[in-house]
């Protein structure tokens, strides 16, 4: 019940497409943060984002936290010999001068123990922890379960 109250205050309907917002921390640019609607709160949610490192020092995403889930984790979908698995990723490298995507079929935030179902049109914050640059919070747009990514003018997909 405590979780439920927390969730209702922190998850709200987004008036605009927050996935298209850009947040920076040091040399890192974080944008296109989105998620997919879930059926109920029992199934895990997912978190996708793009991170660009315009600096000269390698960094790494080492963790995520969010009030929307009791157990958020970094995962990587791996397809080996035709079989898909999604092991825990200790960190996601963000090399100097490069962009990385948490995107369908690759790295993703796995949002286990959701505090409430994620509904299309909602938004929730996720705090990303980087090895060197520290922490930054982004607002995540919940798109439909069918969505393949946010519809931003500058989306790099």
């Amino acid at each position: 019940m405590k979780h439920f109250l927390l969730a209702t205050t922190l998850i709200f309907s987004a008036p605009a497409a927050m996935a298209c917002e850009t947040v920076t921390i040091g040399d890192l640019t974080v944008e296109h943060a989105w998620s997919k609607a879930t059926i109920g709160a029992g199934r895990p949610g997912v978190f996708y984002v793009e991170i660009k490192n315009s600096g000269t020092t390698d960094d790494a995403l080492v963790g995520i936290t969010t009030p929307a889930a009791g157990m958020p984790m970094l995962h990587e979908t791996v397809v080996q010999d035709g079989i898909a698995s999604m092991p825990h990723a200790m960190s996601v490298p963000v090399p100097a001068g490069q962009s990385v995507q948490l995107a369908p079929g690759g790295y993703h935030g796995m949002l286990m123990e959701l505090t409430t179902a994620l509904k299309e049109g909602d938004s929730f914050p996720v705090t990303l922890s980087f090895e060197k640059s520290g922490e930054v919070t982004v607002n995540v747009d919940v798109l439909s379960l069918r969505a393949e990514g946010p519809d931003c003018a500058d989306a790099g997909q």
Binding site: I39, R43, V46, T77, A84, G105, H108, R146, A147
Partner: peptide, 16 residues
């Protein structure tokens, strides 16, 4: 399986 948030909805989106 429907508890799968990444590969399965992505495949179903593609198929759709």
């Amino acid at each position: 399986f429907t508890w799968c948030p990444d590969v399965c909805p992505t495949t179903l989106s593609d198929i759709s």
